[in-house]
């Protein structure tokens, strides 16, 4: 009798173990995937810096370059953030600074500093889907699109990726009808996004060309946007990436617009 009870107990333990193991194995909900992808892509570490080199190629094959340093600080994971972009090249925009206080649920605050005029300019931030410094990247590609702005649907699961279709809740505010994102199952980094226009034709692709693990954090180190209509594209390469460097919040204030902080100087 005692023996059989023990067996039952052991059997229950196994069952419980199998059940809990099964829970880990089961696919996470689409909301979980999207949240994790958002954190992996835009909130790695508590803060970070990177040198960025953008090569913009237009439909006729002419190229332009942008070089800048980008600083980021998370006020809250998945929530409010600060960005500071310090331009180094080309020469005509050298020392120009672009600063964003990113909010969820309300428009971001944006500033621009024009060094030759010593002018701190506040910029209207209503449309986030405009070109970032003349590249094929949008502001929203740089600072992230709010996860609540789309409805998400897990349309496919491959060996390596979750494939999520995103449909905007306010279609009148964006130029796409939907976009599909391939999210790496291990790192949760989005590795590809394909945008469909209002007639459901693909017209824009964003792709992670290279990823590396930096300070234990999976990181995209080279990405590309392709404009399928014009044939133009922009490639961004990220160098000297560092996380958790202890950026103070006051770096993201007017003081450091007028005077670059040490972390962006060499």
């Amino acid at each position: 009798m005692k023996k059989s009870l023990l067996f039952v107990a052991i059997g229950l333990l196994f069952l419980a173990g199998a059940l809990s193991a099964g829970k880990v194995e089961a696919a996470p909900s689409v909301e979980e995937i999207v949240d994790k992808a958002n954190l992996a892509a835009y909130y790695a570490g508590d803060d970070g810096r990177s040198d960025v080199r953008m090569t913009i190629t237009d439909g006729q094959g002419r190229t332009r370059n942008r070089e800048f340093v980008i600083l980021r600080k998370d006020i809250k994971d998945g929530g409010e953030q600060r960005f500071y972009v310090y331009f180094e090249k080309p020469g005509d925009v050298r020392k120009m600074v672009f600063m964003v206080h990113k909010f969820i649920g309300r428009d971001d605050d944006r500033w621009m500093y024009l060094a030759k005029l010593d002018l701190v300019k506040r910029i209207a931030a209503s449309d986030k889907r405009t070109s970032f410094v003349g590249s094929h990247f949008f502001y929203e590609d740089v600072s992230g699109r709010g996860v609540d702005e789309d409805r998400h649907e897990l349309i496919e699961e491959t060996d390596s990726h979750y494939v999520v279709k995103n449909t905007p809740k306010l279609p009148g505010e964006v130029e796409f009808s939907s976009y599909t994102v391939w999210i790496d199952k291990e790192t949760f980094l989005p590795t590809k996004a394909e945008y469909l226009d209002k007639e459901a034709r693909p017209y824009r692709e964003v792709e992670a060309l290279e990823t590396e693990t930096i300070q234990g954090l999976p990181t995209v180190t080279k990405s590309q946007v392709r404009d399928l209509r014009s044939g133009g594209d922009t490639v961004s390469e990220f160098k000297n990436i560092k996380y958790d460097i202890g950026l103070e919040e006051d770096i993201f204030t007017e003081r450091y617009l007028r005077r670059p902080p040490r972390v962006v100087r060499r």
Partner: peptide, 10 residues
Amino acid sequence: RNSIWGGIGN
């Protein structure tokens, strides 16, 4: 100066 009505007012 602040953001207001989808723009910047001063």
